[in-house]
Amino acid sequence: MSGPAAMGYRGGDGDAVGELQGRSLWNDAVARFRRHRAAMASLWVLGVITVLAVLVPEFWPNSLDEVNWDYIQSPPTTENLLWFGTDVNGRDMFSRTFYGARISLTIGVLTTLVALIVGVLYGAIAGYRGGPAGDIMMRVVDVLYSLPTLFFIIILVTIFGNNFLLIFICIGAVEWLTLARIVRGQTLSIKEKEYVESARAAGLSTPTILLKYIIPNAIGPVIVYVTLLIPINIIVESYLSFLGLGVQEPFTSWGRLISQGANEIGTAPWLLVIPAAFLVVTLFCFNFIGDGLRDSLDPKEHTR
């Protein structure tokens, strides 16, 4: 981090004054992220998978539940656009893989969003309130933490039935706990900062202080954790689908495809290998992005 560009200084192009624009810490972080090759490549790969997940199920000639009688359990072939082959029922795996991508990514992102909102607010309130109230809030988290996650989700799914909306509410309802802990820890240190004191001295209300002063300053480690939470949630959904508690036929997700593929591993390995490869690549991508974000949001990197 040196040189005129890094200092926000623009010169030479007829500007009498340097440092014209307001450069936030975010702008600096974005600039650092862009230089992180693995993270940028991962962002591209994820982007391509996302676009395909959106487009393929809508526009691909072979639909996900259409049975191709001439191609039952066919290995990948160029004929009839069956690039990823077909499953035991003769359904196009290309279409199914990207429909699975759509479900898996949606669940990954939406559950994380639920966990993010609940966890950040809960943690920030518990940390900012402090005292006995804050302690009680965190003991509740501890108790929920002690429940075995998967078991808890399975109970919820069994009680409330099995629909798409509930799956991500259930997963999100479990995954917010770690986020609440992270944010509470951050909040405890941030609320002692002078800018929070100064905001209180300026008579700003508690919600304003929480939303505009505490949370933005606590969000760095949260973003990093979120990029790790998305793949975790994709995997949790895979477990559930593997156990038959997730998405129902004819719809599918990566977890479900893998579970079905695992049954045919001797006769039709592509049914397992292809969706598993996509899942692994996606998980890697999120992890690399998490790495990149951690490096670029690290305060130690800040040159002032």
Binding site: E194, Y195, E197, A199, A201, G203, S205, Y213, P216, N217
Partner: peptide
Amino acid sequence: QLNRIRGSRVAMIFQDPMSALTPFMR
């Protein structure tokens, strides 16, 4: 009640201006 007074009727300036402004807001 304090919030109505703080910042409007009584204002306070802190010791360290380097840390008394939140870094993420213009």
